[in-house]
Nucleic acid binder design. Structure first.
Lengths: 219, 219
DNA sequence: CAAATAATTTAGTCTTATCTAAAATTTATT
DNA sequence: AATAAATTTTAGATAAGACTAAATTATTTG
């Protein structure tokens, strides 16, 4: 199927924002992620739904179909392989390559990407440490990381916990931390390993011990 | 200036079709080259004229401005450098790379293209033998070739002659050969070096001696 | 659980790039 | 040079992707 750049970008956005437990993405979160209006997103979701690239119900959000997931994953593969090329072959730095890879990922040619993969030596991770899906779309999920592995400035979604005893969970809910919440890392304290972050525009601090048990997905 | 893909493709088409003596390109020839309608071309020429990328007068055709020429040449540079990469680094064959380079040439990053140039070892010619403009847009004009150097199937425009004595020119006009005419090569005769080609859907044959003195530009 | 708030969709516009059909202009021909 | 033919432009539509403002549906809160 021939997709436009816009359609491809929406699929990628939905994949990025997809998190457990329901794997459903809201209109507003897509709009915020892409920097466009909610109305534009609705229009596109209708179109992607008709093409059966996503499952979409009015007012209920969207999730990727099998086809949509395959296409979005292949875009991630292309994006990350190109990033490796830009750093490894052309000597660019990891912070210079994102925007260029954002354009390169849309080049349509399976042969090209398979040859690029071979040329680069079948790398498993991109320069940011994110895993590169193989030609079949399989990859080791490393996009799920511990909160302690985050870097200041990053935005992420809370997707789970590594411990589930009641006192821990109660502590989290008191702080306003819940699965599905979007967070933004402010910084790591060098002395006590605590992490400052914002949730719902509220600033708060979590101890290193707590942060270690919170799983997030970068967005 | 931020140009759309369509605008860039029009500039490239105009550069390709530009030939002596007047360096002016007609609406219809652009339409034929791009496979679009004359009306669409007129619309775009108006827009490019307003942006001062071309000089355009209604009913009189278009020619590239200095800026337009610079941009179009830089697109040719990108296209040919990417073709070298695809063949030299990825091992593709010269006939597989054109369409992919057609997409890659639009990636916007000066840093990228300069690094790619260095990575490839500052090649002077692409896999088809066409010269690659340097970062300043300079290149050895080899797109002008003798008719004897053509290959069956190629289409070209007659852009000049290497000899200009009267009997030669009279011979040409009798055959229907004139500057600005579009020709298509049918084949080279192995015994007498004569060349068969079509002009205005008329099939004709030119002797090797004559062909040697006709300069063409591939399209 | 009803009212208030938030999220989402619909309706109506705009821009870019395309098209066809009709009108205008230029070029060729008799 | 007048008319015919070819070329080019204008006029009016369409589709994709975006927007704002208004309407609708869902969620939260008192």
């Amino acid at each position: 199927m021939e997709l436009t750049y816009a359609e491809e970008n929406y699929l990628k956005a939905i994949l990025r924002l997809t998190v457990p437990p329901d794997y459903t993405v809201s209109t507003n979160s897509i709009a915020a992620h892409l920097g466009s209006s909610a109305a534009s997103v609705t229009d596109m979701l209708k179109k992607l739904g008709e093409k059966e690239l996503i499952l979409y119900q009015r007012y209920k959000g969207a999730s990727l179909s099998e086809t949509g997931n395959r296409i979005a994953t292949s875009l991630v593969r292309k994006h990350r392989l190109w990033e490796v090329f830009l750093v490894q072959s052309l000597g660019m730095t990891w912070d210079e390559v994102h925007d260029i890879a954002e354009e390169l990922e849309h080049i349509k040619s399976d042969q090209l990407i398979e040859r690029l993969d071979a040329f680069l030596g079948y790398p498993k991770y991109d320069p940011h440490g994110d895993p590169i899906p193989n030609a079949k779309g399989k990859y080791t999920l490393r996009s799920q990381i511990q909160l302690t592995e985050s870097v200041p400035g990053q935005e992420a979604i809370v997707i789970g916990v590594r411990e589930s005893d009641n006192s821990f969970l109660r502590h989290l809910s008191e702080k306003g931390v819940a699965i599905g919440k979007t967070i933004k890392i402010i910084g790591h304290d060098l002395y006590d390993q605590s992490i400052r972050l914002t949730i719902d525009n509220q600033e708060l601090s979590l101890s290193g011990k707590v942060a270690q048990n919170i799983l997030i997905k970068l967005i």
